[in-house]
Structure formats: C-alpha cells, structure tokens
C-alpha cells in the first residue's frame, strides 16, 4: 500500500490538469477591461471614474445581475468577438500600429450630462454621467447607497419623458442592475435615448415579475441638465 505521500502524489498526477489555453475571447475581454480600467481610473481605484471611455466590455462586465453570471460573461465574449471580428475583417487580430485600438473603436464619447440622483425620502444618492458615443448613449451610474435586494429583484434605470405616469408611461429603460456583494452599484448602461426628449432619470426597484413596465418603487430620481456642447 502506498504511503500518504505516495497516495497524494498519485492523486496529484491523476487530477492535475494538462496545460490548457483560455478562450481567446475571454482573454481579450479581460485585457479590454484592464485597459479601460487604466484609462478611466487613472489611479482612481476600483470602479473607475466617470471618464468618457464607455467600452462595451466594461458595460457588459458591469451589467446587471438580472442577466446572470453566464449572461454577463457571454455578453463580454460577444462584445469582444465583435471587436475581434472587426480586426479580423480589417486584416487580423494583430493590428498594425496605425490601426485603431479597441479603445479607439469603442471610446471617444462626449459627456452630455452629469447629475446626482437622490432618493425621494432618504439619504441615498447616485452619480450619473451620460455619454454620447458612436454606438449609442451610455449612462455610468455610481452609488454605494442602494440596498442589496432579495433574490430575483433588481434595480432598473429609466429615462423619463414628460407626462409619464403609471397609467400612461413615457419612459425608456436603460437597463437593469444589482449591487455587488460589497453593496456597490458601479454600472454602465446603454440606451438609444435622447436625453433632451427624456430629461429625467429614475431608478426603480423591480420585483422581477416579468413585467417590462416600471412596476416597482422609485428609489432615486434626478433631472437631466445637458452640458453645453
């Protein structure tokens, strides 16, 4: 019978995986996220700042838990695959020095507004930055004040237009999210919305009832004041 050490050596030999390369799109997603972090944070630490570099990878990585872990990673992979595909079509993944980088393709946004959302009856606040990009409008939402919701529930960010009401809604969802385990909600959401036509932001806590309308409680709200272009 083998000694303990021999038994563990056998176990190590039996279980140690062979060398294996990670999927290219996953590596690319991590690289892009790191590059975006380096650009936006500028040393600002986790979560980044409100720099106008709304990479799709970061948006995907930060998108709400409603999509689930698999959806989040799949979205990153899809986003990266799209970027990689652009390079493949343009002559390969290993671009020339003169070719645009993924950052160049996905960045270059213009900040349209910066506002602070506040709870109607509480101290909770969130910072929101709206960015016009070549691929749409992105809202970077940053707050540590939202409570972690019960499983199945989530927060939803809305662009709200004039005369919006529960009976006659006039709002467009920018996406859903959930605070992370540390209670942070640092999300980048995208919506094809002109903030000049929908000049308010609202965050609701949604019950996860499958109803796409705003059926939950409003927890944050702010008027949008567009910056001079």
């Amino acid at each position: 019978m083998p000694t303990d050490d021999e038994l563990l050596d056998q176990l190590a030999g039996a279980l140690t995986p062979p060398d294996r390369e990670p999927p290219v799109d996953r590596v690319s997603a991590l690289r892009i996220a790191a590059e975006q972090r380096a650009t936006t944070a500028g040393g600002a630490g986790a979560g980044g700042g409100a720099g106008a570099v709304p990479l799709s990878s970061r948006r995907s990585a930060r998108a709400g838990r409603r999509r689930g872990r698999t959806g989040r990673i799949a979205a990153i992979a899809v986003g990266v695959a799209a970027v990689a595909g652009a390079f493949v079509l343009g002559g390969g993944l290993f671009r020339d020095a003169d070719d645009p980088s993924p950052d160049d393709l996905l960045a270059g946004g213009t900040i349209e507004f910066e506002t602070t959302l506040q709870a109607p009856d509480g101290d909770a606040k969130a910072q929101a930055t709206g960015i016009l990009t070549g691929i749409g409008r992105t809202v970077q939402l940053r707050t540590d004040d939202l409570a972690i919701l019960p499983k199945g529930e989530f927060y939803e960010l809305w662009f709200v237009g004039p005369d919006d009401s529960p009976r006659t809604p006039n709002r467009i969802s920018a996406g859903t999210f959930h605070p992370d385990d540390d209670g942070r909600s640092f999300v980048d959401l995208t919506a094809a919305v002109d903030p000049a036509l929908y000049p308010e932001l609202s965050v609701t806590a949604e019950p996860g009832d499958g109803d796409p309308r705003a059926t939950g409680t409003e927890v944050l709200r702010a008027d949008i004041e567009l910056l001079d272009s």
Binding site: T16, P17, E21, P22, V27, L30, E35, R37, A38, A41
Partner: peptide
C-alpha cells in the same frame, strides 16, 4: 496598475487549474 499584459499573463498562468 491595470496593465493589460500583466492581466493576460495572470489569466493564462492561472487558467488550467482554475478551470479544472
């Protein structure tokens, strides 16, 4: 410092065992 090369290296280095 969010060095992308470093993150790729860490990913490739750790991947087989994390995956397993």
């Amino acid at each position: 410092a969010a060095d992308a090369e470093a993150w790729e290296h860490l990913y490739r280095r750790s991947y087989p065992r994390l995956f397993a």
